[in-house]
Design a protein around this nucleic acid. Structure first.
Length: 433
DNA sequence: GTAGGGTTAG
């Protein structure tokens, strides 16, 4: 390209920049640095490639964007510049640049921000940082939203309906009005004659799960089949999850069996579903099946499998799963995995082991962990460990009245009225009751 | 001719 002079032309340059950036970002950057007077086109190519393929080098994308901005009149960002940048702003620590970018859109684009890609990416940015009202407002401003735009608002609503940790304990802590919103919006979408695809259905099915709306969920399942949509892993996982949440274990399993392709997520949904309904052994069977099929378990797999063991007291199996994390799969257990392990041991009365595991942990144990140990110690009447757990709990959460109540009850039980009064006074002093 | 937005389970 250098000898033929092709290296002076934007098109071949952008092609070589794009393909080389897939393999080696440093190399791509070297090429970029040698381009004399790169056009916005060239900048856009590299910015989007960095964001799409090199998530750990996002700062490079912003520094490239900055070079466009400080070039004065030489370069001006266009509507291709922003979508990937807004995508990058959807996660920390880049969220804080999102608002500034929005002002740039209004400043640099003519007519201000009317491109559908820019609009959809902006909508997604606000949705991802929790500004759902703003996302909805932006959506209303979009004339004739296309499929991706509909999917943006639907998945934004669906994502915000349930929070992850609430669900493992069977509590939906999300906002059900948003779930209903998805049903209404889906109806609107059908009326606007935009044909839903697999992503749309995934959002729809996941809110049916949150609402426990079995009829609507089944309707969505039938829609997938009737309209020739692909029952891929995403749709399959959301269907399994929906049937499980609605208590239809048989239908969930049937759907799982019928999937032509199954990935780790499908298995996780199946294992988690069985675990929540108290079928620990069934859950472990699926876990085994997954290993036989050669699929690699991930963080979630270990969480749901340990939960399965913990809820039905499969202590040995649970310990084995935990040990295999690091030994077989090289995955470092997180705080949550330790919590399941401690919970499992404490419930089974193996309190000393549980305490030892807490001591061995590479990270600082949190209050939840000590609470599990405390609960186990109380059930199995181990006063020594109960004391240790309480001490740590009080240190970590002095403001939680629950701990004081437990403590005062404990003193109460062993007739130390002086201490009862002391604790009650302490609560009063700190306005806790 | 070309660079851009939407999907996962706890």
């Amino acid at each position: 390209m250098i000898t033929t002079g092709l290296a002076l032309h934007t098109y071949p340059l952008s092609r070589i920049l794009l393909s080389s950036s897939l393999l080696n970002l440093t190399y791509a950057h070297t090429i970029f640095d040698q381009i004399r007077n790169p056009t916005v086109f060239i900048f856009n190519t590299l910015i989007s490639s960095v964001i799409t393929n090199h998530g750990s080098h996002i700062h490079l994308a912003f520094s490239l964007y900055n070079r466009i901005i400080i070039s004065g009149d030489k370069l001006r960002p266009n509507c291709y510049t922003y979508p990937s940048l807004f995508k990058a702003c959807g996660s920390q620590p880049w969220v804080r640049y999102g608002l500034a970018l929005h002002t740039h859109v209004l400043k640099f684009l003519e007519p201000a921000g009317c491109d559908r890609f820019v609009q959809a990416s902006l909508l997604n940015f606000y949705a991802k940082c929790g500004k759902l009202g703003l996302a909805r407002h932006l959506f209303k401003l979009i004339d004739k939203p296309d499929l991706a735009t509909w999917n943006s608002i639907l998945t934004a609503y669906a994502r915000n309906t349930s929070t992850s940790t609430g669900c493992v304990r069977g509590i939906n802590t999300g906002d059900s009005s948003l779930s209903l919103g998805v049903l209404y919006l889906f109806n609107e979408m059908l009326n606007s004659l935009v044909r839903p695809n697999e992503i749309t259905l995934m959002a729809l099915i996941s809110v049916c799960a949150d609402l426990g709306a079995l009829c609507q969920g089944m309707w969505a399942h039938v829609y997938v089949i009737r309209h020739g949509l692909v029952l891929n892993c995403y749709v399959g996982t959301s269907l399994i999850n929906m049937y499980m949440k609605c208590g239809c274990l048989g239908l969930a399993y049937q759907t799982f069996e019928q999937l032509s392709q199954r990935d780790t997520s499908c298995y996780n949904a199946m294992i988690g579903g069985f675990a929540i309904h108290g079928y620990g052994s069934k859950a472990l069977e699926i876990y085994e099946k997954m290993r036989i099929e050669g699929l690699l378990p991930d963080n979630v797999t270990f969480n749901v499998s340990m939960f399965a063991c913990s809820s039905v007291g499969l202590v040995e199996q649970g310990c084995k799963v935990f040990d295999s994390m690091k030994e077989v799969y090289g995955i470092e257990p997180t705080l949550e995995h330790y919590w399941f392990l401690v919970d499992l041991l404490a419930r089974a009365g193996r309190l000393q082991e549980a305490e030892e595991k807490i001591k061995e942990m590479p990270m600082k144990p949190n209050a939840t962990l000590w609470r599990s140990l405390l609960a186990g110690a109380r059930i199995h009447g181990n006063v020594a460990i109960e004391k240790v757990a309480l001490k740590h709990l009080m240190e970590l959460e002095p403001e939680t009245s629950g701990n004081y109540v437990v403590l005062s009850k404990k003193y109460n039980r062993i007739n130390r009225w002086e201490n009862v009064n002391r604790v009650r006074k302490l609560m009063k002093d700190q306005n806790i009751d």
